[in-house]
């Protein structure tokens, strides 16, 4: 398994191939449906964003509340296809990578190829497993959205599979 540090470098992204398994360590930002709508609203109004898009990797996830003694509760990936409408524009604005589960549509694959970025699949359902890989968790925007808020996570040894690589090759396409 490859070990990758976040933020992802262009070289690291270029070295990845669909189907590779790797461990991620560093900073991730969570965002789901509602948070994306609000991010787009900020972008449309030319307002500052609560995350540094140019170096960010977004994790499609909404964690459980942290139990005592842990940084974060269970926190596996949500279905990425619901973010098909959002991902291309964010990639065009500099987003480096996304993490979720399941296939994404042609527009996302095109945006990944065009911008030489990457989509990782985390293993859906493995909430407790991924929760334990999160060492720090801080809400950085939209706390009223509860679990759908944007959280800044520091992860260690967070396993993923390269689902769509920078050439546009997808693990979901036979």
């Amino acid at each position: 398994m490859k070990e990758l540090t976040l933020p992802l470098s262009d070289e690291a992204i270029a070295s990845l191939h669909a189907g590779d398994t790797c461990y991620l360590s560093g900073i991730l930002y969570t965002a789901r449906d509602c948070a994306h709508r609000r991010l787009f609203d900020l972008i449309d109004r030319g307002m500052p964003l609560p995350l540094p898009l140019q170096e960010a990797t977004i994790y499609y996830a909404g964690p459980c509340p942290a139990p005592e003694g842990k940084a974060c509760g269970s926190c596996g990936p949500t279905t990425s296809a619901r973010m098909n409408a959002f991902a291309p524009r964010l990639f065009d604005l500099g987003l480096r990578g996304i993490i979720g589960k399941g296939e994404m549509n042609g527009a996302v694959i095109d945006a990944i190829r065009r911008n030489k970025k990457v989509y990782f699949a985390a293993i859906g359902g493995a909430g407790a497993f991924y929760g334990n890989a999160i060492k720090e968790c801080e809400c950085v925007a939209f706390p009223d959205l509860m679990s759908e808020a944007i959280f800044r996570l520091r992860v260690e040894h967070f396993p993923v599979v390269v689902a769509i690589d920078s050439s546009g090759k997808s693990i979901y396409q036979k």
């Binding site: 189907g19 398994t21 996830a61 909404g62 964690p63 459980c64 139990p67 509760g73 269970s74 926190c75 596996g76 949500t78 293993i123 359902g125 493995a126 909430g127 407790a128 497993f129 929760g131 334990n132 679990s147 396993p159 599979v161 693990i171």
Partner: peptide, 26 residues
């Protein structure tokens, strides 16, 4: 990759049981 996915799912089950954590965030 399919075996990796199932190994992770099985490990997750053991963690949830041992540490009394929700299996899935959903």
């Amino acid at each position: 990759a399919a075996a990796f996915a199932l190994d992770t799912i099985l490990e997750n089950e053991a963690i949830a049981r041992r540490e009394h954590m929700p299996l899935c965030q959903d």
